[in-house]
Structures are given as structure tokens and as C-alpha cells.
Deep mutational scan, measured.
Amino acid sequence: DRYEFNINGVHFTIDDAEEELIKLIEELLKRGARAEEIEEVIRRWER
């Protein structure tokens, strides 16, 4: 599934997002994580 979200006006799209990654990102968003922090999480996840 495609997952899309915005952080401070920056648009992100993840194709074939796994449910666990989506939950992790949503938790980070609730905590007010910065875009750079979430980008790093996504990079690590994709390795």
C-alpha cells in the first residue's frame, strides 16, 4: 500500500509501506518528530 503524510509542509510518500513502519511513523508524528528524524527511520527500515 502507498502511505502518504506531511511534516511541516514536506510531503512524503512510501510505496509498499509495511504496517509496522506506518505505525512507527505515526507514533513519531504524535511525538512531534522532525522530518529529518523520520527520514532517518525510513532509511534504516529500508536497509
Rank of each mutant, 00 (worst) to 15 (best):
E36T: 09
G9S: 04
E4P: 02
E39W: 09
F12L: 07
R44V: 13
F12D: 01
I38V: 13
I25L: 10
T13K: 08
L21D: 00
R47A: 15
E27P: 06
L24T: 14
N6Q: 13
E36M: 04
I14S: 02
R31G: 10
E26L: 09
V10N: 08
I42C: 02
E19A: 10
G32C: 02
I7S: 07
L29H: 04
V41H: 05
I25H: 00
I42T: 01
E18K: 08
E26Y: 06
D16S: 15
Y3L: 06
D1K: 14
K23Q: 14
E18I: 03
D16N: 14
L24P: 00
D15R: 04
R44P: 00
I38T: 00
R34M: 14
V10C: 05
L21E: 00
H11W: 14
K30W: 11
L21A: 01
E27W: 08
T13C: 10
E37C: 02
K30N: 10
N6A: 11
E37G: 01
D16W: 11
A33R: 03
W45Y: 09
K23R: 13
E20I: 07
A17L: 06
I7L: 09
I38A: 02
I14G: 02
L28Q: 07
V10M: 12
W45P: 00
A35D: 05
E18S: 09
R44W: 15
L24I: 15
N6V: 14
E36R: 06
R34S: 15
A35E: 06
I14D: 01
L21M: 05
W45T: 01
I38L: 06
A33S: 09
N8D: 15
E46Y: 14
A17Y: 07
L28W: 03
E36D: 11
R34W: 05
L21G: 00
L21P: 00
L29M: 11
V41L: 10
L24Q: 13
V41K: 03
G32W: 02
G9L: 04
R43W: 07
R47Y: 15
I22W: 05
E4C: 06
E46G: 02
E46W: 03
R47T: 15
E27K: 14
E39R: 09
L28Y: 09
E39L: 12
A35F: 10
R44N: 15
K30I: 12
R47N: 15
I42P: 00
R34C: 08
K23H: 12
T13L: 14
W45K: 00
L28T: 03
H11Q: 14
E18V: 07
D16P: 13
D16H: 15
G9Y: 02
F12Y: 10
V41C: 05
A17C: 04
E39A: 13
E40Q: 06
E26G: 11
A35S: 09
Y3R: 02
R43F: 06
R31W: 08
E19P: 15
L24A: 13
I38D: 00
D16A: 13
E40D: 12
R34L: 12
F5L: 08
L28H: 14
D16L: 11
E39V: 12
I14M: 05
T13E: 10
D1W: 06
F5V: 09
D1E: 14
G32E: 09
R2D: 05
R43P: 00
R47L: 15
E4W: 04
A17I: 07
R31L: 13
L29D: 02
A17D: 05
R43Q: 13
I42G: 00
A35N: 07
I25D: 00
T13Y: 14
T13F: 12
E37H: 07
A17P: 14
E20G: 13
I25K: 00
F5S: 03
E40T: 05
A33N: 03
K30G: 11
D16K: 14
R34D: 15
L21R: 01
E46S: 03
D15M: 13
E20W: 06
E4Q: 07
D15W: 10
L28V: 06
Y3Q: 03
E36C: 02
E39F: 08
L29Q: 06
E39N: 08
L21N: 00
F5C: 03
E20M: 08
L24W: 05
D1Y: 09
I14N: 01
I14P: 01
N8L: 07
R44L: 15
E37M: 05
V41I: 09
I14H: 02
I22A: 06
E19K: 10
A33C: 03
F12T: 03
E37A: 05
D1F: 12
L24N: 08
E18R: 05
E40W: 03
I25S: 00
N8W: 06
W45M: 01
Y3C: 05
G32Y: 04
N8E: 14
I14F: 06
H11E: 12
I7P: 00
E20T: 09
E20C: 04
E36K: 07
I38Y: 03
I7C: 03
R43N: 11
H11A: 10
I25F: 01
Y3A: 02
A33F: 04
I38N: 00
F5E: 02
A33L: 04
N6F: 13
E39M: 12
E40N: 04
G32H: 07
I22S: 04
R47W: 15
I22E: 01
V41R: 03
T13P: 02
E46L: 09
W45G: 00
I38F: 04
Y3F: 11
I7F: 06
E39H: 13
E37V: 08
N6Y: 13
R2E: 06
E20F: 05
L24R: 07
T13N: 07
E37Q: 08
G9F: 04
E37P: 00
E37S: 03
R47G: 15
E27R: 10
I22Q: 05
I7E: 03
A17G: 08
E36H: 07
I22F: 05
E19H: 12
R44Q: 15
L28A: 15
K30F: 14
E40Y: 04
R2L: 08
G32N: 08
R31A: 14
H11Y: 13
E18A: 10
N8S: 11
E19Y: 13
N8I: 03
I7H: 08
R44C: 15
R2W: 09
E26D: 10
L29N: 04
I14R: 02
E18P: 14
E27Y: 11
K23D: 10
N8V: 05
I22L: 07
R43M: 09
V10W: 08
R44A: 15
R47F: 15
D15Q: 11
W45V: 01
E20D: 10
R31D: 11
D16Y: 10
I7Q: 04
E20Q: 09
E4M: 04
K23S: 12
A33K: 04
I7T: 05
R34I: 10
A33V: 08
